[in-house]
């Protein structure tokens, strides 16, 4: 016993180092697994509060680009409305009583208060949390494309796993055909993402538009993401398909969080099918 105490006293400095280093590695490993990063994240009130204060100043400089984006989106929505009018005239449609009947997605607006895009694994912090009904695994988009998926939440803040992350895999498809692929990021340029798992039957051309596929329960189908910049076709396989994003990930201000109201229903059904 005395030997052990002597040993601990003699090496306590080294043992303390090992102990703290182990704690740090536990945090790193927890952070890598998707749902467990409960402790070390910027969604708590101290870091979130500081970021919120600073971003209220930075906002001022983003006003111009944010306005331009809003005007663009307004034009797009007006065009959409006009198309609707024509359709309404042609076919009869019935009005449902219940306010939310048939509504599949619900959108919440949020402001980005911290944005990283130069690391290998990037994340963002937004100023809405569980008090506003945000949970983990919700899609985050803006009018030009997708931003990421929510990860950890606190009362008023949420961290978002950016699409510029090693752990991010988004189901996408070509706009003009129904071939699905997966969108990943190789960590080099924050405007260029990579498309993998494209079947060789797909006809890809430079300039083709990529949109979200409806396979996942997170993003609605048909959100535009970017265009094909270049690719190689070797051994009858598509390789190195680079996608240029419509979004400038370095300058995003306001985003929308998409809540899929039928998500639980869909996931339960899929789980049951797998288990059978």
């Amino acid at each position: 016993m005395q030997q052990i105490i002597y040993f601990i006293r003699k090496f306590r400095y080294f043992l303390l180092f090992i102990l703290l280093e182990t704690v740090a590695f536990i945090f790193i490993i927890q952070h890598h697994s998707y749902h467990k990063s409960k402790f070390v994240n910027s969604a708590n009130s101290v870091t979130g509060g500081i970021y919120n204060t600073v971003s209220s100043v930075n906002d001022f400089f983003l006003l111009k680009s944010e306005n331009e984006r809003l005007i663009e989106e307004n034009t797009q929505l007006k065009n959409l409305l006009n198309k609707r009018d024509i359709n309404f005239n042609q076919i009869t449609f019935k009005v449902n009583d219940s306010a939310k009947f048939g509504q599949k997605y619900e959108y919440t607006v949020a402001k980005i208060i911290n944005n990283n895009y130069t690391n290998r694994n990037n994340s963002l912090t937004i100023n809405k949390g569980t008090n506003q009904g945000i949970t983990s695994d919700l899609g985050v988009i803006n009018s030009k494309g997708i931003i990421g998926v929510t990860k950890s939440t606190s009362g008023n803040y949420t961290t978002v796993l950016s699409i510029l992350n090693n752990n991010s895999k988004i189901n996408v498809r070509l706009k003009n055909s129904n071939h699905f692929g997966t969108l990943i990021w190789n960590g080099k340029d924050y405007n260029i993402l990579q498309l993998i798992d494209m079947p060789r039957q797909a006809q890809i051309k430079i300039g083709d538009t990529i949109i979200t596929g409806g396979k996942s329960a997170i993003f609605p189908e048909g959100i535009t993401i970017g265009t094909v910049k270049d690719f190689n076709f070797e051994n009858n396989q598509y390789q190195n398909i680079n996608i240029k994003l419509f979004n400038d990930m370095s300058a995003i201000g306001y985003v929308q969080i998409v809540k899929n109201l039928e998500r639980i229903e869909q996931l339960n059904l899929e789980n049951n099918t797998i288990n059978e």
Partner: peptide
Amino acid sequence: FFSDSGGINAA
């Protein structure tokens, strides 16, 4: 905590 990087900087 601020940069959401797990425990990389701490280690």
